[in-house]
Amino acid sequence: MQENLVRLFIALGVFLLMVSWEAISPRRQTVTRKQRWPINLGLAFFNMAMMRLTIGGLAFFSAIDAGEKSWGLLNQLDLPFWLNAFLTWLALDFAIYLQHIITHKWPLLWRLHQVHHSDLEFDATTAVRFHPLEILLSMFYKVAWVYALGAEPAAVIAFEIILNGAATFNHSNVNIPIKLDRILRWLIITPDMHRIHHSTIRQEIDSNYGFSISLWDRLCRTYTADPAGPQETMDIGLPRMRAPQQVRFLRLLQLPFINNGRG
């Protein structure tokens, strides 16, 4: 219970920081907050309530269970706590990178993930625009990795806090000086880097899959440095989702069951 409150307060703090930064110094001009924010935040609250009533905290409790039963790779090694925690975080971050690629390449999972890409603009609320079934499947995927790794429980909580904060940051519409952005990209995913992944151009969508660190995209050659057009005016989202009736809350919940196209 306490760890959930800590995660919630940190997530809210990061979100408020980023939306304030967006208001003061935006990268792109956005005009549809009144239409988009109720949908995106509605999905966020729906998913939070669903997880709270079902399997919220499962990854953390799975890590405790794996430790008690000595399951998983790291539980077979006599490592200092700091190294165990670091390897847990690094492996889980790579797992999420792989998961992201799979959601794009496997048509059944793309049906769910397209809800995230259907946002026609790009700001901090885009980070929470996910179909509830994708959230559930993602949790079971993480649990499998937690047991296989023998993940350190404290590191699992830290990983989820970092992941949530990084996703809010790299989806935000904030203006970072170009030179600073290029430096930061050697370590973390910046908004300009991740915005490319939300492009309407197929080659750009199929790149920059990372959420926290840029290492995986660079190592696995899925890194794209610049979009074909300017960051300020590049098209965002799925072309077929531009009609207003396509982006209503209930429509997005139904989307995986009525359309599985990639365009």
Rank of each mutant, 00 (worst) to 15 (best):
E68L: 14
Q29P: 03
A127S: 15
W71Q: 03
A63K: 09
L163E: 07
A151F: 14
V31Y: 07
R111C: 05
A155H: 12
I157C: 13
S118R: 08
R52M: 02
Q35P: 01
R36D: 15
L90Q: 05
L120I: 11
A158G: 10
N84P: 03
R36N: 12
A23W: 14
H104N: 05
A95Y: 04
A49S: 15
W106Y: 03
T126A: 05
L149A: 06
I96H: 05
W71G: 00
E68K: 14
Y97T: 09
L136N: 07
I101C: 01
M50V: 14
P153G: 13
W110L: 09
S118F: 11
L74F: 08
I55V: 15
P132V: 13
I161N: 10
Q35K: 06
F61C: 07
L17C: 14
L137E: 14
Y141Q: 02
A23L: 11
G72M: 01
H116E: 11
L87D: 10
F86V: 10
R28Y: 03
D78M: 01
V156F: 05
L74T: 08
I102R: 00
W145E: 04
L77H: 07
H117Y: 11
D65H: 14
L133H: 05
A124D: 08
R33Q: 03
F60P: 06
D78R: 02
M48Y: 04
K69Y: 07
V31H: 09
L98C: 04
A154K: 03
F81A: 05
H131C: 07
P38H: 00
T88I: 11
R111G: 01
T103W: 01
E68M: 10
L41P: 05
N164P: 02
A44H: 07
G72T: 08
Q114R: 15
